[in-house]
Design a protein around this nucleic acid. Structure first.
Lengths: 153, 153
DNA sequence: GAATTTTTCCGTATTTTATCCGGTGGAAAC
DNA sequence: GTTTCCACCGGATAAAATACGGAAAAATTC
């Protein structure tokens, strides 16, 4: 697997924001031929710098008006609470992100739901019913100041 | 702006995961002609359901090995601390997300950086130097259990 | 420092894909 | 029953992606 150069970074920077740009236009912007550009793009994918492509959707227009972060504390008595919890979380479609953190709690979860009623049900039926969950703290988002900032390449 | 139907949702679901899929293949998967599929895609963009497209990059291969969440508390004495803070945050390229939350603190920030040294500098030079920041709590991510879950359409 | 290997790049030809356009069928409105 | 509207289709055209041979540049070796 080869190293990455300046042009590759520019390609990544553009694709991060305009993922469906035509290869031709991408080529023009970075100042290379379409063939060379396509070669680079393929390499960046093959080498794992680009994991995939995706559409950015507007959650609010799609029935996900509520963004919530949840801090989760686990009951660390059983040896594989962490594994169990991680696996359960990956199967829950409501969970957009879940990170194990160092600090005052164990996991930070990001979820998008329709409204508070839905959230209430999610908390009870999904989260609190998971084995090993000792405590949760809910933070409802009032305003999304910045949403999907690109990596500053 | 028209309503969305079952087929539209399937299109969105596919595009969320495979944003660069060819219109032809998309058409085949949903069982419509390429023309009809293209029409729907255009409409979904025009009506704002699809905000854009982007490449999913691997942060770790690009020099962003450290994911950090930061809880921020503001000094609510000046009337426009919130606006000032929000604007400053939007200009900071290190900040991937920033949300104003209801609960024990005011803002939750998500940032990706090279390492702890870089983070230390970011905290001092950027965050703590913003006007109105009273207190911050740092949570370094040890394991990314789930990263970019799609909306469960 | 010259020769060789490797990598990156380009241009052309071919294939694939997207878009345009006229027309069809079905549902709702009149 | 006719008209209107909408989503869809298929064929024609335009545009883009890909494959391929070879040239230039860079790195490696001797």
């Amino acid at each position: 697997m080869t190293e990455i150069d300046k042009i590759d970074r520019r390609i990544l920077g553009i694709l991060q924001v305009e993922g469906r740009i035509a290869n031709n236009e991408l080529a023009e912007r970075i100042g290379l031929s379409p063939t060379a550009t396509s070669d680079r793009l393929k390499r960046l994918q093959k080498d794992g710098y680009i994991v995939g492509f995706g559409a950015r959707l507007d959650p609010h227009r799609l029935g996900f008006g509520l963004l919530v972060f949840i801090e989760v504390l686990l009951d660390k008595t059983t040896p594989d609470v962490f594994d169990d919890f991680a696996k359960a979380v990956q199967r829950a479609p409501e969970v957009l992100e879940c990170h194990m953190v160092a600090g005052g709690f164990d996991y930070l979860i990001k979820t998008r739901l329709a409204d508070m009623t839905t959230y209430r049900r999610f908390l009870g039926d999904v989260l609190l019913s998971l084995p090993g969950v000792k405590e949760t703290r809910t933070y409802a988002v009032m305003e999304e100041v910045k949403n999907d900032g690109p990596l500053p390449l």
